[in-house]
Nucleic acid binder design. Structure first.
Lengths: 194, 194
DNA sequence: CTTTAGTGAATGTGCGTTTGCAAACTAGCA
DNA sequence: TGCTAGTTTGCAAACGCACATTCACTAAAG
C-alpha cells in the first residue's frame, strides 16, 4: 500500500549519469540531479539517505552493469572485433557514446580517497577488462588476430587506449569523441591483426 | 619599497599542485592550498584575486611548463627513447612521478566548461604531444624506430597510452604508477622498435 | 611616513540535511 | 459504493555548516 513512486531508482540513477556528464565536478549538486530527475533534493535524500548514498548507488550500478554494452554488442555483431569496436566506441545502435561521459570518466568525479568509491571504480575497470579480454580471445580463436598475440596484455592496452582517448578528448575537445576512440583503438590493434 | 613577499608565486603554485594531488576534487579548497603554502586563505585571494584566479594561474603555469621535463630528460639521456621514457614515467632523477597527479590528471579537477580552463588544458596537451613527437622523430633519425613508422600518429598513441595508464591507475590503484606507465609505454612502442 | 604583505574576524552564500506537512494510494469495513 | 485509517511519497521551508570573499588592522620594509 501507500503512494506509488513517480520515479524509479533506475530513472534517478540515469538522471545522475546525465548530471555527471553535463556539469563539471563542482556542478554535481543534489539540485542538479533533482532537476534532471524531476524531483526535489529532499526526495533524493529520503530515497538514498544522503548525497553520498546516491553517488555510491550510482557507482555500484555502473560497476554492476559495466558488462552490458559488451553483451549487447556480442549479440548484434558476428565478428568479435566488430563487437569490441561497437561496445567500446558506443555506436552499437547508431547512438554515439550514450553513457560514456558518465562511464570511466564519471568515476573521476568521485572521492577516490573513499574506499567504497574506489572499490566500485576498481570493479568497473576489472569487469570492463574481462569483457575486452574475452572478446579478444574470441577474435584470436576466430583467426582475426595474429597467432602469437597474448590476450591479457593486449586487453590491458586496449582499455588503456580507450581511457586515454576519452581523457584527451575531454581535455582538448577537438573532433567527435567516436573518431578519437576509433583512432586509438585501431592504432592499438593494428600491429596484432591477422 | 614595501614589505617583501615571504612566499613567491611559484611556491604558491607548487603548493597548489600538492593540494590538488593530495585531496580530491572537493578537497581543493583555499584553506588546503593555504595550509600547503604556509599562508592564510585571505592572502591567496589578495595575491590572485580569487580562487578561480589562483587555479587559472596554476593551469596557465602548468601548460606553459609542460615541455620542461622533456627538455631536462633530453639533456640527461643520450638515447631519444630513453629520454622519452624518463620524461613520461618521471624517473628522470630517481624520483617517482613527482608532479604527475597534478599534471594531466589535475586538469580534470577544473571546470572544463570554462573556456579559459579548457584553453589551458588543450595547450598543455598540445605541447606535451609536440614534445613526444619531437623525441620520436629523433629516435627515428637515430635508427631506434622502424623505418616506415610515422611519428605523428605514434606520438598521439603514446600520449593516449600514458594518460590512459594514469587514469586506470587512479581508478584501481594496483601496483606502483611507474610500472603501469612503463608497461603502457612499452606495449605501445614495441611494434615500432627497430 | 608611505607602501606593500599578511592576517583574523566578519559576511554572505551555496548546498546538504532535517523536519513538518500535504498529497496519493491501499485495505478494511459497512 | 462511500468512508476512514494507515502508509508511503514528495516537497517547501528552515537549519547548519563549509567555504569564498571582504574588511579593518598590524607588521615589516624603504
Amino acid at each position: 500500500m501507500g503512494r506509488p513512486r513517480t520515479t524509479s531508482d533506475e530513472a534517478i540513477l540515469a538522471a545522475t549519469a546525465r548530471a555527471i556528464g553535463r556539469h563539471g565536478p563542482q556542478g554535481l549538486t543534489l539540485a542538479a540531479v533533482a532537476g534532471q530527475a524531476g524531483l526535489s533534493p529532499a526526495t533524493l535524500v529520503q530515497r538514498f539517505g544522503s548525497k553520498r548514498g546516491l553517488l555510491l548507488a550510482f557507482a555500484a550500478h555502473a560497476a554492476h552493469t559495466a558488462a552490458e554494452p559488451f553483451e549487447r554488442a556480442r549479440r548484434e555483431h558476428g565478428s568479435p572485433l566488430a563487437a569490441l569496436r561497437a561496445a567500446l566506441i558506443g555506436r552499437s545502435e547508431g547512438v554515439a557514446i550514450p553513457e560514456e561521459p558518465a562511464g570511466s570518466l564519471g568515476f573521476l568525479q568521485f572521492d577516490l580517497t573513499d574506499p567504497d568509491f574506489r572499490a566500485h571504480a576498481a570493479e568497473h575497470a576489472r569487469r570492463t577488462r574481462d569483457q575486452i579480454a574475452a572478446l579478444l580471445a574470441d577474435a584470436a580463436a576466430a583467426g582475426e588476430l595474429a597467432a602469437g598475440s597474448e590476450p591479457a596484455p593486449l586487453a590491458r592496452a586496449v582499455q588503456v587506449a580507450c581511457n586515454g582517448a576519452l581523457i584527451l578528448w575531454a581535455l582538448t575537445g577537438d573532433g567527435p569523441l567516436p573518431d578519437a576512440m576509433a583512432a586509438a583503438l585501431d592504432q592499438t590493434l593494428r600491429p596484432y591483426l591477422a
